[in-house]
Amino acid sequence: MIFTIARKELRSLFAAPSTWVILAALQFIFAWFFLARLDAYLQVQTQLAQVANAPGATMSVASPLFGTLALMLMMLIPLLTMRLLAEERRNQTLALLLAAPVHTSQIVLGKFLSLVAFIILVVAASTAMLALLGIGTQIDSGLLAANALGLLLLSASYAALGLYLSALTKQPIVAAMSATALSFGLWLIDIGGAGTGNALRALSPTTHAQSMNAGFILSGDLAYFILTITTLLLLTIRRVENNRMYA
């Protein structure tokens, strides 16, 4: 049942031309950044060669690009999550799902999974582009994989946040604005508190993606993402279930 709902969401996502425009624009911008970064690396490469234990191409080109992509996805994902529940409520199609013999958790998980599938597509396409570095040099596939995982978890938590906010309102645009504002705020907490040891930084998802950006997969970070996503999904399920109480 979860997959039936997820498949339907994916289909309507890809039926909209805006999705393809977003995907194309994202790949174009990403490729542009990649090129610029590669260009900069090639210029300093001769100097780097003289340093002992110099960072490799993956570390100097790919890792920073994953950071850039994370920022782009932070702004993009709310645009995809906003319609998931808010629009159903506005168009009164939620009644179909609520009257069907499915549990609320299946509705919410189905919608979340459709987004995760979309995110996997974006992350895979971008990782594949970066793997092209392998044509010219040896790449650190472990670092690349850790980065991809970090980006996936980070984006999934943005998706869960967006989904929850979409469950709170009837207006998709309100859901998008509040999701962007919240994830932007969390990002600011991270960069604002960098180097100060501020405990608040632990709240920000970007903080927890950093070690994966450097190639370390820490169980603490994994736990953070899993807990955040689970909590937000549970809140969403609760909110949708509340529709039956205070529609």
């Binding site: 309507s12 009164q92 199609t93």
Partner: peptide
């Protein structure tokens, strides 16, 4: 089987 006041149709499908 339930038909609400506003039919729950996904207009883009």
């Amino acid at each position: 089987g339930y038909l609400p006041e506003t039919p729950p149709l996904y207009r883009d499908m």
